[in-house]
Design a binder for these strands. Structure first.
Lengths: 341, 341
DNA sequence: TTGTAAGCGTTATCAG
DNA sequence: CTGATAACGCTTACAA
């Protein structure tokens, strides 16, 4: 069956050049300990000389494992990819890095709607498992991934359901950190802008953390709800406007995401409130834009490097049938200019 | 040779279930036109019933092509991945999307230093070609990729050398756009903050575009050089400070990157200059943070979706031995508040 | 239009 | 410690 294809250096060629059998080449290069050092050396030299590289497809076909993890990024349907929350991109990067550190490659796919939802990486032997990262807003996507066959190895970030194999920030601890920081700096009437019903589980967890910290301090928590379906910044802006117009006294705002907090910040300053003197503002996420706002936004930041590692570790543990590791990513407070000293 | 592995549904099983030969299954599923519709239907149904999925490794081994593109992101050594220019992340996303639209998968790797530089995707049959995206600052990386063997299919973004198979923004046109915009808005003494010697080729091209537009208007271009090795924002800030202290009169600043422009903007406002009334400021890149500065930054934005498509198209053309397509990505002016109406 | 059979380039088992 | 040799599961040339 003489297919016409470009010649390729195979382990057979190396075997010939090194004067050994082809299986010895395979073993020598794979680091099998049963090969004597002199032989291994000869093989390695021959391989280098011929510029030989293993054909991964053949190796995988034979081995049955791929050494690859799939990474599915779920976007909002039709969304401009530039408007994806930058944290997700950072997470993508740290996940790739963590996978690489553990000897895995990463196959990346962006998916946004039913036409392109696809998660059969294992069945196709394209990957040994899957990391799914996405906003909980895309409910169709989570429906899809929630129904993948038994035996699918996967972990996710941003899942709306407790049933999923999630990893997420320690949202409650972060929100308590943020709220206590404001209390220490002398703010008392602190309002939370957010939601307890959003599919974004973390919004609820952040509200809970805020509420707990308020109650610990003997203060009444208050939630100013965002409107659904708007861009986050606009949600923050409108919620702040509504709060102001409601006449409710307040001197602090905890936004459940940076973009919401930035929207609120903009509304406040445009209405003549002085931040941080009259009102303190704190966000959550640590997006880049927060460092550029005026004043720069005090916020709570997840350690996205740890997040990537945790996702990968859990997934690899699942693939190997081992006990999974932690699923909560630590957070830290980043104090900037939107809360007074 | 009965290896112990979990059972797998193969095309043979489907063949049996559908009452046809195994090669018919392959052809039917691959959409071969020689298969009759009734047969195809039987096969597809059997496949669905058995939950069959092709083993990509076997398919690739046989075909010799992988249907995969590698995407190497070059970072600064040891750099926090969050501080990667967001444009690169957007480009990563649009490249994945473009590849996917053309039937390719994308294998992503982040590389930052000689220990992990690796570009032998073709030899290992992991991919048919490679997109390399990175800052020209990492010269070690470009040295490495420039020396890959003859026959390597690759394209790149951010290359410092004209010899490389680059795709880049139409920097000169963009800079002319920015400069003419300032001229039209009545600014006259426009200074460019940047460099003509940086390994970042685009900085030179942007300066050239600026200079050309100034000369067209009968004005003298002037370059305020940035100091090497600092973060971009700091470079912009210091250059602006130096410019002010030099006593040279100016009423406009064109920064060769948004981060440089934002640094300059901060320095100006902190010294009491009013932007855009006293001084106009324009950047280049369209980073997210520019929309949040006060005033928001007028800038030139590359169409990163087109950029991703161009990279992928060129690469696929190279793989197929065809005539390559365009290598310049169009840009557009985004007018915001840092230039007067 | 379909079946038969030859590989693709490895890894893993079994003998020696 | 090393060499034969049998898979791995598919695609494709060739024959019918």
């Amino acid at each position: 069956m003489p297919d016409k294809r470009p010649h390729r250096v195979t382990s057979f060629d190396v075997a010939e050049a090194a004067g050994v059998s082809q299986s010895t080449v395979s073993r020598a290069l794979a680091g099998d300990t049963s090969i004597s050092e002199p032989t291994r050396k000869r093989v390695i030299e021959a391989a280098a000389r011929l510029n030989y590289q293993v054909d991964e497809n053949a190796a995988r076909l034979r081995r049955g494992r791929t050494g690859t993890l799939a990474l599915v990024m779920i976007c909002r349907p039709g969304q401009d990819r530039k408007d994806l929350n930058p944290f997700y991109f950072a997470l993508l990067g740290s996940t790739c890095a963590a996978a690489s550190a553990r000897g895995y490659e990463v196959l990346v796919a962006f998916q946004d709607s039913p036409e392109n939802f696809w998660g059969h990486y294992q069945e196709r032997r394209k990957a040994d498992g899957m990391v799914v990262i996405g906003t909980s807003e895309n409910t169709a996507a989570w429906d899809y991934f929630g129904k993948l066959p038994e035996g699918t190895n996967w972990v996710c970030w941003g899942a709306p359901s407790e049933e999923f194999p999630w990893v997420r920030s320690d949202n409650q601890a972060g929100a308590m950190l943020a709220t206590r920081h404001m209390l220490v700096r002398g703010y008392r009437s602190i309002v939370c802008i957010g939601s307890e019903t959003s599919p974004q589980r973390q919004f609820k967890e952040r509200f809970d953390g805020y509420a707990a910290a308020m109650q610990d301090a003997g203060l009444e928590p208050f939630l100013q709800r965002i409107e659904r379906g708007l861009p986050r910044e606009e949600q923050g802006r409108r919620a702040a406007a509504a709060l102001i117009e409601s006449g409710r006294p307040f001197d602090g705002i905890f936004g459940v995401s940076d973009e919401i907090a930035l929207g609120a910040l903009k509304e406040l300053t445009s209405r003549g409130f002085r931040v941080p003197e009259d009102v303190g503002v704190v966000g959550f996420d640590g997006v880049r834009a927060g460092a550029w706002s005026i004043p720069p936004l005090t916020t709570v930041e997840s350690d996205f490097e740890v997040a990537g590692s945790l996702l990968v570790d859990r997934l690899i543990a699942m693939i190997g049938g081992q006990e999974p590791s932690s699923r909560r990513v630590p957070v830290r407070l980043v104090v900037r200019g939107s809360t007074r000293a």
